[in-house]
Amino acid sequence: MTSVLLSLPDLYNSYKNWVSKNPQNASEYETASKWLSYFIAGRINNSHVMSELVYCVSNLLVLFNDQIIRECHQHTKSSSSQKLKVWLTIIEYSEVFCELSAQKLWGNRGRWLIITAIQIFKCIARLQLIYKHKETIIVTPSITPLERDNISQNNTKSLLDLEQNGLNSASFTLKRSGRVVRKVESSPPLPLRNWKPLEPPLLMSNTENDQTVEKALTGKQLLAETLYVIKPIAHLCSVGCFGANTWKPWILSIAMDLTSLQLYKSIQKKSLDALTRKQRLQLSRRMVVLVLYLIRSPVYEKYTGNKLHALLLSLSKNLPLARIICQPLSQYLPFWQSNYFYMWST
Rank of each mutant, 00 (worst) to 15 (best):
N13V: 00
Y264A: 03
N245D: 11
Y29A: 14
Q82S: 13
L333N: 01
S260D: 01
Q331Y: 08
I120N: 09
R111S: 05
Q282P: 04
I115T: 10
G107T: 02
Y340F: 14
T276L: 10
T246Q: 12
I120G: 03
Q103K: 12
V291M: 13
E163Q: 15
S81C: 08
L283F: 09
N155K: 15
R111K: 15
I91P: 03
L113Y: 03
K183M: 13
T31K: 13
M256H: 09
S47P: 01
E28Y: 09
Q268M: 07
K183Y: 04
L190R: 11
S78N: 05
N194E: 02
A41Y: 00
G305V: 02
V239P: 07
T346S: 15
L292K: 10
Y228W: 05
S297N: 12
T226G: 09
K83V: 05
N245H: 12
V49G: 03
L129D: 07
I40H: 01
K248C: 02
L160G: 11
T140F: 13
L160S: 13
S271T: 01
H235D: 07
S79A: 07
K83Y: 07
K34T: 05
T140S: 12
A244N: 12
Q164K: 11
P188E: 00
N45Y: 04
K270W: 00
L227C: 13
L281N: 12
P197H: 07
Y264N: 08
K134D: 13
Q67F: 04
F172A: 10
H133R: 04
A170W: 00
A102E: 03
S101G: 08
L333R: 00
L167E: 06
K183H: 10
V184W: 10
C326G: 09
L294H: 01
N22D: 10
V86I: 15
M1A: 12
H48Y: 08
E301L: 12
P145N: 01
R323K: 13
V139S: 15
L223K: 11
H75T: 07
V139P: 05
N45T: 08
L281T: 11
R111I: 01
P145V: 00
Q282R: 15
L198H: 08
K269S: 14
E163D: 04
S7M: 14
K85Y: 03
P334L: 09
A102I: 03
L8W: 07
L61S: 13
V288D: 08
I151F: 01
D273P: 06
K231V: 04
W18S: 13
L84P: 02
F64D: 12
P200I: 06
S253H: 09
I120Y: 04
F121M: 08
I44R: 01
V4W: 10
R193C: 02
A41L: 15
K269Q: 14
A216H: 09
Q119R: 14
A274Y: 01
G110Y: 10
S297W: 00
L100A: 03
N165E: 13
L227H: 05
L174G: 01
C98F: 08
S58Q: 06
N59K: 14
T173F: 06
P189H: 11
F121L: 15
Y228R: 06
M343P: 07
A32Y: 09
D149V: 02
T276Q: 11
F39K: 03
L222Y: 03
S330K: 13
H133Q: 08
I124A: 14
G107H: 02
E28N: 10
